[in-house]
Design a protein around this nucleic acid. Structure first.
Lengths: 214, 214
DNA sequence: CGTCAACCTGACCAGATGGTCAAAAGAAAT
DNA sequence: ATTTCTTTTGACCATCTGGTCAGGTTGACG
């Protein structure tokens, strides 16, 4: 996430706006229809741009898709940082879960695109999984093992704890249609999101034998 | 799941074999490429049938897709039955989680198709969500509430407990590529599946304050 | 064996879609 | 004002894909 320098001139500013508009629209369309189901024409229409203009900024559909996915990965990385390797299990996990739930609420389309990508074998982002994600996971597993060695939590397989957190938090974004349907066809409100976050955190912490607020 | 009567003759037998072959192949291709990404030609090639033959049995791609999804839903319903409403929390949840993990292992393609469908707004199965799934969920929520009233488990929001179980168990199928990558690029073996099931069950049970084996 | 219905299949078509291009329009620099 | 570079855009094309169809093949049945 490089801090972006301010636009040098009118052109540069417009260019950024257009890029942002295209990326945001594309994220939604890719999330709703999948890579193949999304068409450049549909993205163009939603963004109110001629299709040829999209191809000016992103030569191919794959280029556009890749940038959408990379943006999402960076958001994920930000949240991943909040898994503080120096904090107590309670602090680290509570913060991490909250952050992930917030992402599910604020970036539902991104989460869906990511899910889609992984479900279909991660053809575009396979290298990310093998490098960045693997490294991140290994270091966190070591942290969790240390917690167990120090008797701060029960002995469990750290891998499955992580999967459980990922699966559950992302479920609220990826399966939002199912959740909405089961919620009287209403979007979850602030209170319900807070309730979900609290409930998930509590079950996870109790599940691994970590006292809360400790 | 109607018990199928035995084929009356050679023709009937062949017909069933062909139907089963097409459905199984389609399930895999739909899982790997999504609805739009999967082509009738690809399914035909994989099944070693002429494309026109597919259209003989399934007039349109949507018909084929719908039947694939319906088959998956029935498998889900079977597992759902194992959430015994009369058993203790430990029994009911342990069995249910085990059953769902088994499905994730034995029907990974089906799970992926389902996930895809829900992620994209469940255009085909929306009626299932609104009827069968809603009813099932309501009855199970009542059961969980009874457990809480009887002091068998802690007070939590039953809805989120269910979401957690669904999310986590299905994660092993839907995100298998990620899991394999993080597992030294090897498929999970018998021991690892048993380990995962045990670990998930333990965290959930402890998470809601239910003693194990009780 | 003959008839009929079910089944199979190569060839074909219409529409959709990713991508191209040349020309026009607009901003920046001189 | 003129030149130069970036951006915009409508028209166009090659390819892919779902679906059709006419004619051939096969099994059931009397």
């Amino acid at each position: 996430m490089p801090a972006l320098p301010k636009p040098a001139n009118r052109r540069e500013g417009l260019r950024r706006e257009t890029l942002a508009l295209i990326l945001a629209t594309a994220e939604r369309i890719f999330a709703e229809h999948g890579f193949k189901g999304a068409t450049m024409q549909a993205i163009a229409d939603e963004a109110r741009l001629p299709k040829a203009n999209l191809h000016y900024y992103f030569p191919t559909k794959q280029d556009l898709y890749r940038q959408v996915v990379e943006r999402i990965f960076n958001i994920w990385l930000d949240a991943a940082e909040s898994f503080d390797t120096t904090a107590s299990p309670q602090e680290a996990l509570t913060t991490y879960i909250r952050k992930k739930m917030e992402i599910s609420r604020s970036h539902p389309y991104g989460s869906k695109v990511w899910a889609n990508e992984v479900i279909h074998g991660a053809p575009i982002i396979h290298d990310y999984l093998e490098t960045t994600l693997t490294e991140w996971t290994e270091t966190r597993i070591k942290v969790i093992e240390r917690w167990m060695d120090e008797g701060l939590i029960d002995r469990i397989n750290p891998r499955h704890l992580l999967y459980m957190i990922w699966a559950t938090t992302q479920h609220y974004a990826d399966f939002s249609h199912q959740i909405v349907t089961l919620n009287d066809s209403k979007e979850m409100n602030d209170q319900q999101w807070a309730d979900a976050t609290e409930c998930v955190t509590r079950i996870i912490l109790a599940g691994i034998g970590a006292k809360r607020g400790g």
